[in-house]
Amino acid sequence: MTYEPIWGGIIAWYLFLAGLGGGAFITSAFLKWTKPEATTMRRIGHIVAPVAVCIGLVLLMFDAKAGFLNPLRFALLLSNFGSVMTWGVVFLAAFTIIALIVLVLDLMKKSVPNWLDIVGVVAGVCVAIYTGVLLGVCQTFPLWNNALLPILFLVSALSTGAAAVIAIGILVKPQEFNEIGLLKKTHYALPAIEILLVASLVFITAHTNQAGFNSIMNLIGGQWGAWFWIGFVIVGLLAPTIIETVTLFFSSPQFEEGATARWLSFASDAGVLVGGFLLRYLVIVAALPLTMVVPML
């Protein structure tokens, strides 16, 4: 039998947007603590966080057709605290509420208490990690069922969140872009970490068992190979790393602060976003279950 993935694009968008929302909030908090004067960028993060998560949730509800047709059933989501998804709902709800409160405070130009930021950051991290654990508890998919995936998704969430904030910042308030050096440097490190994590994931999964090996072959060769190498690795990881390496370390400060550098950086952020989405999508569709290949079939 050929195996058809259970989830597809919509769930990939959901996982991507949830992570991105969490990452954007964390980016804002990071900016607040390291560069308090970058208020526009901070606000962008505050807006992106709840909006992205809410869009993700709407997509999720849309994909959950039985619930979509009977919306009252969503009230049942808190029924089973043994379910990662139930915890996800808790995290998402908590995070969305905090993010909205923070946004309102920000828009009302009131100061956001530090504890609230900290709670929000914790909730954001939970949301980002949850998107990985959600897949991870499905034991029969070796590509999902490992400790690396939540970490990878967390790093990717931070990376895409920051990329979204920076990219929008470039469009809305270019001059602030030049002042957030530390964020840029931190952000720069993330794709590099991701490369390491993905390489480990591929290596480890391929060595677990036949299904793991087949999943990896499916991911890096087979049907999804081109998307993986061109879309995720080159556009999403290598290109941003190279662009940022060049602009951050090998170009003059004037160039670094010029329009070309901004647009290069914009392109690199866009690449990170594309890569972030493709990571979720490919991990979802390329995974093959264990019983398809062992022990009899």
Partner: peptide, 18 residues
């Protein structure tokens, strides 16, 4: 319980035998 199911398909992904 079909009246409680929201169709999230989480169980489908979790069933080791599909």
């Amino acid at each position: 319980d079909h009246g409680r199911c929201i169709g999230c398909l989480y169980c489908m992904a979790a069933c080791p035998y599909q």
